[in-house]
Amino acid sequence: MDYVPALARWLHFMAGIMWIGLLYYFNFVQVAALKAATADGTAAGITKHVAPRALLFFRWAAVVTWLAGATLLGGQFVNAFTLQGGMAAIGVGAWLGTIMLFNVWALIWPNQKKILGIKPATDEEKTKARRVAFLASRANVMLSIPMLFFMAGGLSHRGVFFGM
């Protein structure tokens, strides 16, 4: 059935745009906006109304992106993750995406719950949570650059970049 990989690719793109789009929103827009909003006493608008909604779509888009990507790899899933059978380039993209998914669910979301008051935390725990969530988010921005390179050029355009 050719419909499954075709639909998986479509879903992978849509969910991936939502995931990475929100990641870039957090890092390129919200971090600086929150600093300015804290200074003029309007931070609650972001932390109460914007951030929880953005995080909801962010973390679930990450899951959908990964699942659609795994479906897209299909029978080549193991070859990609073991970097074999000519799948090393897309495999590196898949590994980077997987590490980023881990960062979302194991580091960013649990710490954001403390920061936003969804989970009770002391001021000291909140300060630590802010730093961990910030660095995990920034690490994901850094990883997204090679991840998108290998996603874009690692399989369908591998002839251009890797001469195969």
């Binding site: 890092n27 970097l83 660095l135 920034r138 690490a139 921005v141 850094m142 997204s144 390179f149 690692g154």
Partner: peptide, 30 residues
């Protein structure tokens, strides 16, 4: 030393350097 991830430019440049490193590593494998 300052953490490059503390600035957006540091983050983007780190990502580009990582891309180059991984590109040549994968080129060796393929």
């Amino acid at each position: 030393m300052k953490n490059p991830l503390d600035s957006l430019w540091g983050t983007v440049i780190s990502g580009l350097i990582l891309t180059l490193i991984l590109y040549f590593a994968v080129k060796c494998i393929l």
